[in-house]
């Protein structure tokens, strides 16, 4: 019975506490360590993908657009920045620092089936994340360690990752809004 009383007191105390403290605890990393008894690790010690990590899906091209050379093999490349009479969808949506950029900052003029880094190095479309990393190095680093972006699979083993371009259209990279799933009927329990 004593034990039961103690329990009851504790519940009342807790209820009191949870009513009192609506505020949230915001702590910096050092405190998070103390909480979890975790010692500091060397930040950014992993800067490449592990080989057991593979892409969930190939580059998400529109049907029929790849290989680009199906058309471009028969066209004279034209490096002049201009309003294109083709690829209207892309020209219309193009909103990626578009004042200062154009197609050929990312696509190669001659080898149209490749992406191109500023250094002139050609890239397969499977490695488009390296292209993004040229200008978004911080994001690429977070993505490589699994913090930015999305992974599926095993938390301690084989994982699959999503490419940057499966979430961000390279021509208009802002993440597109989503339709939310249905709200709950009622709150069966709540945090207040």
């Amino acid at each position: 019975m004593k034990c039961y009383l103690k329990t009851k007191l504790k519940i009342e105390y807790l209820l009191f506490l949870s009513v009192c403290f609506l505020i949230i605890g915001c702590n910096d990393t050092t405190e998070a360590y103390k909480l979890g008894q975790i010692e500091k690790i060397n930040p950014g010690s992993k800067s490449y993908l592990k080989h057991e990590e593979i892409a969930v899906s190939p580059p998400p091209f529109t049907d029929g657009v790849f290989p680009c050379n199906d058309c471009h093999a028969f066209r004279k490349p034209n490096a002049v920045r201009r309003k294109l009479e083709w690829h209207e969808d892309i020209t219309d949506m193009f909103n990626h620092d578009s004042e200062n950029r154009w197609c050929l900052d990312c696509h190669d003029l001659i080898k149209r089936d490749s992406l191109r880094l500023a250094s002139g190095k050609l890239l397969d479309f499977k490695e488009s994340y390296k292209l993004c990393g040229q200008c978004h190095g911080d994001k690429l680093r977070d993505w490589e360690v699994g913090v930015h972006g999305r992974r599926t699979g095993d938390w301690n083993g084989k994982k699959q990752y999503y490419l940057c371009v499966s979430c961000h259209n390279p021509h208009s990279p802002k993440f597109k809004p989503l339709k939310p799933e249905a709200p709950p009927f009622r709150e069966d329990a709540e945090i207040k």
Binding site: S18, F21, I24, G25, C26, N27, D28, T29, A32, Y33, L35, G36, I38, K40, I41, P43, G44, K46, V145, G146, V147, I191
Partner: peptide, 13 residues
């Protein structure tokens, strides 16, 4: 990695 490198918080600390 997150605990070491990001701004972290817990609810009702």
């Amino acid at each position: 990695y997150i605990l070491a490198n990001k701004r972290v918080l817990v609810l009702k600390q």
